[in-house]
């Protein structure tokens, strides 16, 4: 379990992290969302035992990061922001160095090294200095280092930042494969990632925890939740036809692509009614979709007031 309680960090007058409390259980992939400078990395650095909290506490698998730092560090795998590693070393020597500091010896050491090298496809670059590797490989070396000791808890700070779509997909697959029995906390500002890997999302802005829910619950907060979008040959004709549906609160047409979105009245489902109208009136529709909700819109709605407040 990763648990923080009223975790706070001040830098002079600035409060980077403001009384953040949450718990993550095994099997959970917790996504840390927030605009840049929201305090995501600072929170992770405190849990990883790099920065000391100004007040509050953090525990990893029951070990307090301040009073039992070594025990907490032993059960935690940590990928710092930007995946730093020693550039003059080769991935093999670097991973062996980490294995030594993690206290891995003998057969177990060999098996773990083989396992992470295989999982992250590092075999081709094992004896090339890390400095000469591409960004994607550097990130994978960082990930390999974090999971080398097969830790029960993992903190990954922007694990897919700077990767190309294929690499992103691979890293997400890796996280999903490990998710079953581990506690994983990842930070990201890519919202699609939340869908791809997280089963719980925490939104932070200006150091405050603003939301803690599943991605589906967050989407349900969107005004798009339950809305129906369609692309019609004649948008105005479709709007006029849909105006008759009683449960529709309002209709908007995207000025750019002429896509029409009908918003339901609170608590009403309108998809059946809309498709009925489209069929009955013979409106030519090239696409019709029920919206689950838009995370980016929820994200903006939740964080924007706080971002402005922080700037003022």
């Amino acid at each position: 379990m990763i648990e923080t309680s009223q975790l706070t960090k001040h830098y002079g007058n600035l409060t980077a992290v403001d009384h953040i409390s949450f718990k993550a259980q095994p099997g959970q992939v917790l996504g840390f969302l927030g605009p840049n400078g929201a305090g995501k990395s600072t929170t992770m650095k405190m849990i990883a035992g790099f920065l000391a909290p100004s007040s509050g506490s953090a525990r990893v698998c029951g070990f307090d990061v301040e009073t039992q730092p070594l025990e907490a560090k032993r059960v935690l795998g940590y990928l710092p922001e930007g995946a730093p590693s020693y550039g003059e070393m080769t991935p093999r020597v670097f991973l062996e160095f980490v294995a030594d500091l993690r206290g891995l010896t003998g057969d177990l050491r060999r098996r773990r090294l083989d396992d992470v090298i295989g999982r992250l496809h590092l075999d081709k670059v094992l004896s090339q200095p890390i400095d000469t590797l591409s960004k994607g490989f550097k990130r994978r070396v960082g990930l390999a280092q974090a999971i080398l000791h097969d830790p029960p808890a993992l903190i990954l700070d922007e694990p897919t930042d700077g990767l190309d779509p294929n690499q992103k997909h691979e890293v997400r697959a890796l996280i999903n494969a490990m998710a079953r029995d581990k506690i994983i906390v990842i930070s990201t500002h890519i919202l699609e990632e939340v869908h791809a890997v997280c089963n719980r999302a925490v939104i932070i802005a200006a150091g405050k925890l603003l939301a803690d829910a599943t991605p589906a619950e967050l989407e349900a907060r969107s005004r798009y939740h339950g809305a129906v979008s369609l692309t019609a040959a004649n948008a105005e004709q479709a709007r006029a036809a849909l105006a008759a549906v009683a449960d529709i609160e309002s209709i908007e047409i995207d000025p750019q692509d002429q896509r029409l979105t009908a918003f339901p009245r609170a608590g009403k489902a309108i998809f059946a009614a809309v498709s009925e109208v489209v069929k009955a009136q013979g409106i030519a529709v090239s696409e019709l979709q029920l919206e689950a909700g838009r995370l980016d819109e929820v994200f903006r709605t939740i964080t924007q007031p706080h971002v402005k407040e922080a700037r003022a």
């Binding site: 070594l70 980490v98 500091l101």
Partner: peptide
């Protein structure tokens, strides 16, 4: 400069 200090000090060493 390279940020490895964060890596080093979050490994289980004092």
């Amino acid at each position: 400069k390279t940020g490895t200090i964060e890596l080093l000090l979050t490994l289980p060493i004092t």
